[in-house]
Amino acid sequence: MEEDTGLNILAITIFTITLSALLSPLLHFSPYIPAGITFVLLGLVTIDTLSWKNQGVNLLLNIFASEEQKQRIIYHEAGHFLTAYLSQIPVTGYTLTAWEAIKNNNSGLGGVIFDTSFLEKKSQDMREFNRLLDRFGVVLMAGIAGEKVIYNNSQGGEEDIKKFQEINRNITLTATNFQMKQRLAILQATTIIEQNKDAYLALVEAMKQRKSVTECQDIIAEYHQ
Rank of each mutant, 00 (worst) to 15 (best):
L7D: 10
N8C: 06
A11K: 15
I12D: 08
I14M: 14
F15A: 14
I17R: 00
T18R: 07
L19S: 13
A21K: 03
S24Y: 01
P25S: 04
P31A: 02
P31H: 03
T38W: 01
F39Q: 02
L42S: 06
L42D: 01
G43V: 04
V45C: 08
V57P: 00
N62Q: 11
A65N: 11
A65Y: 11
E67S: 08
E67T: 06
E68K: 08
Q69I: 03
R72E: 05
Y75T: 03
E77V: 02
G79C: 02
F81A: 03
A84S: 12
L86G: 12
P90N: 11
G93A: 14
G93E: 10
Y94K: 11
Y94F: 14
A101E: 07
A101F: 09
A101G: 09
N104E: 14
N106M: 09
N106F: 07
S107Y: 10
S107A: 11
G108F: 11
L109T: 13
G111T: 05
G111M: 05
F118K: 13
R127V: 05
F129K: 13
N130C: 04
N130D: 15
R135I: 04
G137H: 07
V138F: 06
M141E: 00
G143P: 02
G143T: 02
I144G: 01
E147D: 05
K148D: 07
N153R: 06
S154C: 02
G156H: 10
E159R: 13
K162F: 12
I167E: 05
L173D: 06
F178H: 10
Q179R: 13
M180N: 12
K181F: 09
K181E: 13
Q182Y: 12
R183C: 00
I186A: 05
I186S: 01
Q188D: 12
Q188R: 13
Q188M: 08
Q188C: 05
T190E: 11
K197M: 00
D198R: 07
L201P: 00
M207D: 08
K211A: 08
V213I: 14
T214F: 12
H224V: 04
